[in-house]
Amino acid sequence: MKIIKKVAIKKIVTDQSKEQLREEYQFKIFQLEQECEQLKFEQKKLEQRSANKKADIAAKFKKELSNRKDHINWYKYKLEQLEILPIGSEINDGEVEAVIDIEEGMNWDDLTDQKSIIIKDGMITKIT
């Protein structure tokens, strides 16, 4: 019989991976800031068309802008944490599902132990 099990992906922090994450976070911040500008533009456009629904429009856009600003602050926090993260540390990078063959007589505890895949600079270095 086959079962599906989640396997953790862990990355070892190197100078290269740190720079890659820094660029990724900065790009996400840039995208979110662009979305905020676009939302402000759309809000003004809609408010001019529907003067009687100005309060409703403002409330909806305020919620969306607040959501994006929270995400921007989250990525800024991640950038700060990245700067203090030492080279050689392991960081979680999600999960994948693995298909595992099971048979009668196998030790269930061995199967349920947390498995992980360790990656360094894009190469798998260890499977546990």
Results as ranks from 00 to 15, higher is better:
residue 42 E to P: 08
residue 98 A to G: 04
residue 91 I to T: 04
residue 38 Q to Y: 15
residue 15 D to C: 06
residue 27 F to R: 15
residue 121 D to T: 04
residue 55 A to K: 14
residue 21 L to I: 13
residue 66 S to E: 07
residue 103 E to R: 12
residue 11 K to P: 02
residue 42 E to L: 15
residue 99 V to L: 11
residue 26 Q to Y: 01
residue 98 A to W: 09
residue 53 K to H: 02
residue 29 I to D: 01
residue 118 I to K: 02
residue 18 K to P: 09
residue 79 L to W: 03
residue 6 K to W: 14
residue 58 A to C: 10
residue 78 K to V: 00
residue 48 Q to V: 09
residue 11 K to N: 13
residue 65 L to K: 05
residue 80 E to P: 03
residue 99 V to D: 12
residue 104 E to G: 11
residue 60 K to N: 12
residue 41 F to A: 15
residue 110 D to Y: 11
residue 75 Y to I: 00
residue 31 Q to K: 12
residue 50 S to N: 12
residue 34 Q to L: 14
residue 31 Q to P: 03
residue 59 A to N: 04
residue 39 L to R: 04
residue 67 N to Y: 01
residue 118 I to S: 06
residue 115 K to G: 06
residue 123 M to P: 02
residue 126 K to F: 08
residue 57 I to K: 01
residue 39 L to K: 05
residue 63 K to V: 05
residue 43 Q to K: 15
residue 55 A to P: 05
residue 69 K to L: 02
residue 114 Q to G: 10
residue 91 I to N: 03
residue 9 I to W: 07
residue 97 E to F: 13
residue 110 D to N: 13
residue 126 K to H: 11
residue 44 K to E: 15
residue 94 G to V: 05
residue 29 I to A: 00
residue 22 R to A: 08
residue 119 I to M: 08
residue 25 Y to N: 01
residue 93 D to M: 06
residue 23 E to Q: 14
residue 89 S to N: 14
residue 22 R to E: 08
residue 60 K to W: 04
residue 21 L to N: 08
residue 49 R to W: 08
residue 38 Q to P: 11
residue 29 I to R: 01
residue 23 E to F: 11
residue 18 K to W: 09
residue 2 K to V: 12
residue 83 E to D: 08
residue 115 K to M: 10
residue 58 A to E: 15
residue 15 D to W: 04
residue 107 N to P: 07
residue 99 V to S: 13
residue 108 W to S: 09
residue 60 K to Y: 07
residue 61 F to M: 08
residue 9 I to D: 09
residue 102 I to M: 12
residue 8 A to E: 09
residue 125 T to I: 12
residue 73 N to H: 01
residue 77 Y to F: 12
residue 93 D to Y: 09
residue 106 M to S: 00
residue 69 K to W: 01
residue 78 K to A: 03
residue 112 T to K: 06
residue 78 K to D: 00
residue 45 K to A: 05
residue 46 L to I: 07
residue 77 Y to Q: 13
residue 46 L to S: 07
residue 104 E to Y: 14
residue 118 I to F: 04
residue 31 Q to A: 10
residue 73 N to G: 00
residue 98 A to F: 08
residue 108 W to H: 08
residue 83 E to G: 02
residue 7 V to K: 04
residue 72 I to R: 00
residue 66 S to K: 07
residue 98 A to V: 10
residue 51 A to Y: 07
residue 29 I to Y: 00
residue 35 E to I: 05
residue 8 A to F: 11
residue 59 A to G: 02
residue 25 Y to R: 00
residue 104 E to I: 13
residue 9 I to F: 09
residue 57 I to H: 01
residue 87 I to A: 01
residue 64 E to R: 10
residue 2 K to Q: 14
residue 35 E to D: 09
residue 108 W to E: 09
residue 97 E to Y: 13
residue 52 N to F: 13
residue 66 S to P: 02
residue 97 E to G: 10
residue 22 R to F: 06
residue 82 L to M: 06
residue 56 D to Q: 09
residue 45 K to C: 01
residue 98 A to E: 14
residue 126 K to D: 11
residue 49 R to P: 05
residue 60 K to C: 05
residue 70 D to V: 00
residue 67 N to I: 01
residue 43 Q to W: 03
residue 1 M to T: 15
residue 29 I to H: 02
residue 81 Q to T: 05
residue 50 S to Q: 11
residue 10 K to W: 07
residue 44 K to H: 13
residue 13 V to M: 11
residue 102 I to C: 08
residue 14 T to L: 04
residue 128 T to A: 11
residue 38 Q to R: 15
residue 103 E to G: 12
residue 18 K to M: 11
residue 19 E to W: 06
residue 104 E to A: 13
residue 79 L to Y: 00
residue 124 I to S: 06
residue 62 K to F: 04
residue 99 V to N: 12
residue 9 I to C: 07
